[in-house]
Simulated scan of single mutants.
Amino acid sequence: MEHKKTIVVKVGSSLLANTERLTPRWAFMHHLMEDIARLRESGAKVILCSSGSVALGLNTIGERPETAGLRDKQAAAACGMPLLLNAYKQVAHEYSFEIAQVLVTLRDLEDRNRFLNTKNTVDRLLDANIMPIINENDTITTEEIRVGDNDRLSAKVAQMVQADELVILTQVEGLFDKDPADPSAVLVEEVTDVSPYLAVTEGVSSLGSGGMLTKIQAAHMAQNAGCDTRIADGEIERPVTSVLNGERRHTKVFADKQPASAWANWLTDRLQMAGSIVIKAAAATALEDGPQNIGREDVISIQGPYVKGDVIHVYDESGKELARALTNFSSDETMALARNVEISALQLLGYKTGGTLITDKNMIVLSDRHLQWDLPDGNDMTEVASSG
């Protein structure tokens, strides 16, 4: 049986909303939805990750992008979401297909059960031949608990549905080797390793929350899952198919030939750091041979707060990130256990437990394929002064 491609398309606010008037850019939406209809008619499953609700709602509450605060953006999202979905629905009906809205928060993607529940919803919509439109729920999220950009959200969605292609539409042709405003800048058309380009991808648009850095980070997450990523200009009559068919210039980030498992990708490709621990040299050395149990006696310092079941980052004393793993205890419980290694876990916590902080089956030791996160600032770390 012929494999039917699954394609995730991400579009940003600057393509969907007029910068000055903050109204829908209908011409772009028509080009986009007509092109998606072509893909669907060819048998592809398409998921759209769309920004735009905040930008489209700002007029309603009398604000501008440059002056809007968090509460303004939350209110604007509430006003703009029905405008955005109504626009999409009107255009989709012209091309005879149905859409559905899926709003997510950071916890929906970082918590395993909620991640799987979201996946089940998206899969069911695709089975019914309905195109999911996924966006972060900006109405209820705060800066501390939000995904932060729809580029990386789209990569998590690509991982979730095991997509073949992630197409990120923006207002430039793709990744350049320096600031695109520089006349000497050269388009990078093919990328296998994103690391060399991270330092030259800063800056964000006036309407969006992400720049080229978040697009490259998203591409890296997608390639870990075996998904190719295309970064391209969206201001084209056939914005998606012309890229997939190789008809115009863009940046292609190639998928890893041996992608990690869905579990490993969920565990390692985080959107935010819930917390971290620094472990002693002997425990760090042991991880060179693969995942190992981490005991309370192995911990030097802790950064939180985090809760049981969160994914935490594991560092050595030099600040090198070694692994990411599910924690068996909250940060407060971890601190109590690590500071009192001579006292039983039952006595400290009030319930029976072996006291192992991390088990090897819930750990991924980082490899060259992973982008390491810097160790949190020392002021955020709490030293373990064990009485043992």
Rank of each mutant, 00 (worst) to 15 (best):
Pro24Thr: 04
Trp26Ala: 11
Trp26His: 14
Met29Lys: 06
His31Asn: 15
Ile36Arg: 02
Ile36His: 03
Arg38Phe: 12
Leu39Asp: 01
Arg40Asn: 09
Arg40Ala: 06
Ser42Tyr: 12
Val46Ile: 14
Val46Thr: 03
Val46His: 02
Ser50Ala: 11
Ser51Val: 10
Ser51Leu: 10
Ala55Glu: 02
Gly57Met: 08
Gly57Ala: 11
Gly62Ser: 09
Gly62Arg: 07
Glu63Ile: 05
Glu63Ala: 14
Arg64His: 11
Glu66Thr: 12
Glu66Arg: 13
Glu66Lys: 12
Thr67Ser: 10
Ala68Gln: 07
Ala68Tyr: 08
Gly69Ala: 13
Arg71Gly: 08
Asp72Ile: 09
Asp72Phe: 09
Lys73Gln: 07
Gln74Leu: 08
Ala75Pro: 00
Ala76Leu: 05
Ala78Gly: 07
Ala78Asn: 01
Gly80Gln: 05
Gly80Cys: 02
Pro82Leu: 10
Leu83Met: 14
Leu84Glu: 02
Asn86Lys: 15
Asn86His: 15
Ala87Leu: 07
Lys89Leu: 11
Gln90His: 11
Gln90Ala: 11
His93Ala: 13
Tyr95Ala: 00
Tyr95Thr: 05
Glu98Ser: 14
Ala100Gly: 07
Ala100Val: 04
Gln101Val: 03
Val102Met: 00
Val104Met: 07
Val104Lys: 00
Leu106Arg: 01
Leu109Pro: 01
Thr118Tyr: 05
Thr118Ala: 14
Arg124Lys: 15
Asp127Thr: 13
Ala128Ile: 10
Asn129Leu: 11
Met131Cys: 10
Met131Gln: 04
Pro132Glu: 10
Ile133Tyr: 02
Ile134Asn: 02
Asn137Glu: 11
Asp138Val: 06
Asp138His: 11
Asp138Pro: 04
Asp138Tyr: 06
Ile140Val: 15
Thr141Glu: 08
Thr141Asp: 04
Glu143Gln: 15
Glu144Asn: 12
Glu144Pro: 05
Arg146Ala: 13
Val147His: 02
Val147Leu: 06
Asp149Ala: 10
Asp151Ser: 02
Leu153Trp: 01
Lys156Ile: 05
Gln159Arg: 10
